[in-house]
Design a protein around this nucleic acid. Sequence first.
DNA 1: CCTACCGATCGGTAGG
DNA 2: CCTACCGATCGGTAGG
Lengths: 215, 215
Amino acid sequence: MGNAVIDTCRIIHAMEDSPGEYARSDSNEEIMLATYCALREHGYADLTIKRIAEEYGKSTAAVHYYYETKDDLLVAFLDYLLDQFIDTVHEVETVDPQQRLDLLLDKLLTDPADHRNLLVALLEMQSQAPYKITFREQLQQNDEYLRYLLRTVISHGIEEGVFSDVDAEHAAQSLMTIVHGARTRAVVLDDPNALVTARRTADDYVDAVLQTNPE
Amino acid sequence: MGNAVIDTCRIIHAMEDSPGEYARSDSNEEIMLATYCALREHGYADLTIKRIAEEYGKSTAAVHYYYETKDDLLVAFLDYLLDQFIDTVHEVETVDPQQRLDLLLDKLLTDPADHRNLLVALLEMQSQAPYKITFREQLQQNDEYLRYLLRTVISHGIEEGVFSDVDAEHAAQSLMTIVHGARTRAVVLDDPNALVTARRTADDYVDAVLQTNPE
DNA sequence: CCTACCGATCGGTAGG
DNA sequence: CCTACCGATCGGTAGG
C-alpha cells in the first residue's frame, strides 16, 4: 500500500515532467504536487520543507524562494487540495433535481481516481484546523460551498414537487455529515468500502426523507 | 477558546492533585492526563515529550521512566482516550430497543462535559492512523465495538417487531458514518451545532428507515 | 525519578 | 535558484 502511494506520486511527476509545453512559472504547480506527495507519504506531523524539496527535486532554499514560510506554502496547498474536490463536483452539469442530487452524491462519495490519496491528504490538513485559523476558515468555506450546492438542488426539487417540503438546509447538512463521516471512516479505518456504504446511506436518506412517494 | 481549553486542563489537574487518596502508582493516569492536555493545546504535530512533561510537572526523563518511547506512550494514550468514549456509552443500561438506540445515539452525538476537547484529541490521533498500524488497529477495534452495540440493539428491535426488517449491519454502519461525520465537522469547522444537527439526522434515519409505521 | 548531555533534524537565511 | 550555515529543538540516554 505504501508502494502504491509512492507509485502514484511517481506517475504524477512523470506526467508533469513531460514535454515542456507551458512556461516555467508553473513551478508553483510543481511545488503543490510535491507537497501533496510528501504529505501523503509522511503525514502532516512529519511533513518538512526538506521532504517537500526532495519531491520537488530541488533544494529547500528553492522552496523558500516561492513561499516565504512553511505556513504560506501550506495555506496555498490547502486551497489547491480543496480545489481538486470542487473540480470533481463541477463535472456535474445536469439540472434535473433528482438526477443532479444523485450525481453530486456520486462525486462526493465515490469517483476516485486518486480519491483515496486525496482523502488522506485532506485528513492530514483537517487535523490542523483547531490550531490554524486560516486552515479552519478555508475548510469552512469549502463546506459552505458544497452545502450550498446541495441546498440549492434540494430546493429546486421541492419547487418542482419531486422532493417533499423539508428543511433544505437541514437536509444538506445531513448529507454533508454523511460525506464527512464516510471520508473519515474510509481513511482512518482503511476501509474503501466505507464510501460505498455511505453512498447507500445517502440514498436511504434521500429516498426516505426527500423523495415524495407517488402513490 | 484557547483559554477555555487551558482552564479545562487546569481544572482536571486540580481535581487530581487533591487529597492523596490512592497510591502514587497512578502516575500513569497522571501522564495520560498530561498527554491529553498537551495534545489538546498543541495538536499532534507539535506534541513533544517536553510539553507532556511540563503538563505532568516533572522532567522529560520522568516520562521516559514510565514509557520507553514516545510511541509506547501514544499507543497507551489512544487506548485511554477511546476508553473515555466507551465509558460514556456504557452508561446506557436500558434494554428496550427503541429507547436504548435513542440513548446510545445521545451518548455518541451529544453528552459533552469535556466532549469537545475529547473530540479534538480524537481527531489528532486519527490523523496518524494512515501511518501507524497500531493506531489504525485500535481505532478499527473501537469502531467495530460501537457498531456491534448498534447492530445488536437494531437486531433486537427487529425481532421484537418495533423495527422494520432491514439489514442491521448496514443500518449500524450508516449510524456510525453519521457519528464520525458529526465529530469531524464539529471539530474541523468549529461548529458545536454539528453534533445537534447530526443527532437530528440520526433520528431522521431511524424514523424513516428503521421505524415500523403502525397504521 | 533529576541533571546534563548526545546526535539528528528542524525552519529559515546569507551570499552569491 | 544553490551551498553553507544559523540557533532552536527534537527523542532519547548516561549516571546518579
